[in-house]
Amino acid sequence: MSTNAVVDLPPDLPPDTADLPVLLDWLAARRADAPVWRDRYGLHHVFRHADVEVVLRDVATFSSDFSAVMPGSEAMSKGMLTRLDPPEHKALRHLVSAAFTPRRVAALEPRIRELTRSMLDGAGASFDLVDTLAFPLPVTVIAEMLGLPASDRPRFRGWAEGLFSMQVDDPKEAVADPAVRDAMGEITSYLGDWCRARRADPTDDLISALVTAEVDGRRLDDEEAANFSMLLLLAGHITTTLLLGNAVRVIDENPGTWAGLRAEPSAIPSVIEEVLRLRPPFPMTARATTRDVEIAGTTVPARSIVMPWLLSANHDPDAHPDPERFDPTRAGIGGGSQLAFGHGIHFCLGAPLARLEARVALEEMTSRWAGVSVGEGEQRPYTGRVLGTRRLPVVAT
């Protein structure tokens, strides 16, 4: 744990993700003294690994449907996989799950490696990792899977950076915020055009699969298909973008790791898992209670928003001994106790793809350069609800 004191913070709000040492200290204090903590907006935050796991697993008590607690959210949630409960969740997930099976994802490796090499060929001795590789690699892959033109990559990046940097004072009011509605509307309008085009002339891509498949005897309408496509597009690239930046930063902070990976590339998957544990791209998620429920001795009323902290769970010493230590050899690092991709029915659909993209990128980088270190210059960390940086200057040797 860091030695930073948690001072000068609002007593009823968490620290920002941009100040990770302070945030980790604050999370450790909450795990010890307030494992369920209510903020100024009435959200109940959950910090211990065992409790976070229960929240993620018990979908009957902790719902992903926020319509009862966030009036007006229904339209933005239509077709949004992360905001649905069974049985609709299962039916919609099944629509695209075949595209993300380990076997189908593994078949993408030659294309991912080709793209990685091409992008790194254009890098000099000093470059921005996000601009050069961490953003364009995953966004190109998911755009190709969806059937969207690579020429629209700048538009995708602007949308992602805008949404994931957006600050809303009261999260329960997010759906009513004009900036949020405008941003979401611009994306779904773009994707709605593609959904209508693919409905009229289907091809071999994920958008065509969404608009032509039947779910319980009906087809998705354009709004549902556009929302689902938006989730795939944004989550399908931002996760890997954040993961790659976090991986290079963690490796840089632990001397000898890069040289070790050059000598033993087979260790790269374990390093990726440890990076995910230490710095999950999404440090928290959200659920809505369907009934009064007790968590760690605290009664949380029905129709409350619960925020399970994946970052805190991954740093819980009861689940991971000596949790602040970077240790890719730790037991069970690739098992279910590592919650970066969630747990239960909402386990990240794109986890196999993110892991593959990160592995190929690190294989290509470590085989190409004796070392890559974080250079001078602004990193521009994200604030709010994602953990990572929008810029990462690096020096390759």
Score class of each variant (00 low, 15 high):
R103Q: 05
T188R: 15
T240M: 05
Y190V: 11
R385S: 13
S118D: 15
V250R: 11
S189P: 07
P154N: 08
D25E: 14
E223T: 03
T290L: 07
Y190Q: 08
L148W: 00
V372C: 07
H320L: 08
P154E: 12
D131V: 03
P71C: 11
R291C: 14
T383V: 03
D252M: 05
E378T: 13
T290A: 14
T61P: 13
R155W: 08
P71M: 07
I187V: 14
L353C: 10
S126P: 07
E214A: 07
G79Q: 01
N254M: 14
S304D: 09
L243G: 07
P280F: 10
Y382L: 04
F228M: 01
A351G: 07
Y190H: 10
R103L: 00
D131L: 03
P301Y: 06
L163W: 13
F347K: 01
S151Q: 13
W258K: 01
S304K: 08
R117T: 09
L56C: 13
A5K: 11
D25N: 15
V180A: 13
P202F: 00
D121I: 03
L13W: 04
P283T: 12
S67V: 13
N227Q: 00
L146S: 14
S67D: 12
G236M: 10
L349V: 08
L310S: 15
E161S: 12
P136A: 09
L24M: 14
P202Y: 05
L392R: 15
V250A: 12
L392W: 12
S270W: 15
A340L: 06
E223Y: 00
M284E: 09
S63W: 00
A361S: 10
D33T: 01
A134M: 05
R355I: 04
A143R: 02
E74F: 02
A209F: 03
A354F: 10
L356I: 03
V168G: 15
D193K: 08
M230K: 09
R355M: 10
K90Q: 11
P102D: 10
A361E: 01
A107W: 06
E144A: 02
Y41W: 14
A123L: 08
F341I: 02
P255A: 11
R218N: 07
A125R: 11
P178E: 10
G236P: 07
P10A: 07
S165N: 07
R249V: 01
V386E: 09
R113K: 14
R291F: 08
D85Y: 00
T240W: 06
Y41K: 02
V139A: 13
R391W: 06
V250S: 09
M307K: 11
V46N: 05
F127T: 05
P171V: 03
V130M: 06
D292N: 09
T82Y: 01
M166Q: 14
R31A: 13
T82M: 04
R330D: 01
D33N: 02
K172L: 02
M70I: 13
V59P: 04
A286I: 12
A286K: 10
S270Q: 10
V139G: 05
D216G: 15
S126D: 14
T383K: 08
E376T: 02
T212Y: 00
V54D: 14
G334V: 06
R40L: 03
L43R: 05
E357S: 13
S229E: 01
G124D: 14
A183W: 06
T289S: 12
A68Y: 10
G350P: 12
